[in-house]
Amino acid sequence: MKSLFTAVALVVMLPVVALAADTAEVGEPAPAFTLKDEAGKEHSLAQYKGKVVVLEWTNPECPFVKRHYTAGTMQKTLSGFDAKKVVWLAVDSSASHTPDVAAAWKKEKGFSYPVLQDPSGTVGKSYGAKTTPHMYVIDEKGVLRYAGAIDDDPRGNKKEGTTNYVKTAVDALLSGKPVPASTTESYGCSVKYKS
């Protein structure tokens, strides 16, 4: 009876172990992916090797995302980086969104970086993306160096002294220094994964 219980326990635990091994971890190589953007163009993490890559999990319907785009948080953060050294990719893992939704939103907000389509949620789950926005910074060698919030102002009510974690992480990587805070607690709406 004991060996039967052990066998059942192992079978039950195996999927959990396999899932944990496929989840992104800071300090480890970032999970590879290839996704199409809102215009149908393919983007893979591998094609950006040699550059710092910022991944932004997004959902144009989320109030937190709307606030950041109205304030220009993402756009201003990106504009402070050298475009030859840093790539910004938004990823939408919302099961119900189509490329048309992303294209219309991109046009409305006037930003140029791609919105990668992940309706199956496979890439989002491999990164452990929980909220929109949820941010990841990958170094030029493909190693995940930061995961968490865009900043330390979840409610958007700080008048001054906001710390932009993504800017801090990218600046550190570009100057060859370690990222001061490699993980923070992300905030926002839950990612609307396919159920």
Results as ranks from 00 to 15, higher is better:
1 M>W: 02
1 M>P: 07
3 S>V: 03
4 L>N: 00
4 L>C: 00
5 F>A: 10
7 A>M: 05
11 V>L: 13
11 V>R: 00
11 V>P: 02
12 V>S: 01
12 V>L: 12
12 V>F: 07
14 L>T: 11
14 L>F: 12
16 V>M: 12
16 V>T: 11
19 L>G: 10
20 A>C: 08
21 A>V: 06
24 A>E: 11
26 V>T: 09
27 G>Y: 08
27 G>D: 10
27 G>V: 03
28 E>P: 01
29 P>L: 05
30 A>G: 09
32 A>W: 02
36 K>H: 06
38 E>T: 06
39 A>K: 10
39 A>Q: 05
40 G>H: 04
40 G>Q: 01
46 A>M: 07
46 A>K: 14
46 A>H: 11
46 A>N: 13
51 K>R: 09
55 L>M: 13
56 E>T: 07
57 W>I: 07
59 N>D: 15
60 P>I: 09
61 E>W: 10
63 P>E: 13
63 P>H: 14
64 F>G: 03
67 R>I: 08
67 R>L: 15
67 R>T: 08
68 H>Y: 09
71 A>W: 04
72 G>L: 01
73 T>Y: 00
73 T>D: 12
75 Q>R: 00
77 T>E: 03
79 S>Y: 00
79 S>N: 04
81 F>N: 00
82 D>V: 01
83 A>W: 02
83 A>N: 01
87 V>A: 11
87 V>G: 04
89 L>T: 04
89 L>M: 12
90 A>S: 14
90 A>H: 10
93 S>A: 15
94 S>G: 14
97 H>S: 14
101 V>L: 13
102 A>E: 07
103 A>T: 03
105 W>Y: 12
106 K>N: 00
107 K>P: 03
107 K>Y: 01
107 K>H: 02
110 G>K: 05
110 G>Y: 04
114 P>F: 02
114 P>L: 04
115 V>T: 12
116 L>V: 04
116 L>Q: 09
118 D>P: 12
120 S>M: 08
122 T>K: 15
122 T>C: 07
123 V>M: 13
127 Y>D: 13
129 A>E: 13
130 K>F: 10
130 K>T: 15
131 T>P: 05
131 T>K: 15
132 T>D: 13
132 T>R: 06
133 P>Y: 08
135 M>F: 04
139 D>A: 04
140 E>W: 02
143 V>G: 05
143 V>T: 15
143 V>F: 06
148 G>M: 06
149 A>T: 06
149 A>R: 08
150 I>K: 06
151 D>P: 03
153 D>V: 08
157 N>S: 09
157 N>F: 02
159 K>H: 06
160 E>K: 09
161 G>C: 02
162 T>C: 03
164 N>Q: 06
169 A>W: 05
174 L>Q: 01
174 L>A: 02
174 L>Y: 03
175 S>H: 06
180 P>N: 03
180 P>C: 05
181 A>M: 07
181 A>L: 08
182 S>C: 02
182 S>N: 09
182 S>P: 10
183 T>R: 13
184 T>W: 10
186 S>P: 15
190 S>V: 11
191 V>N: 14
191 V>I: 15
192 K>S: 14
193 Y>P: 13
195 S>H: 14
195 S>W: 11
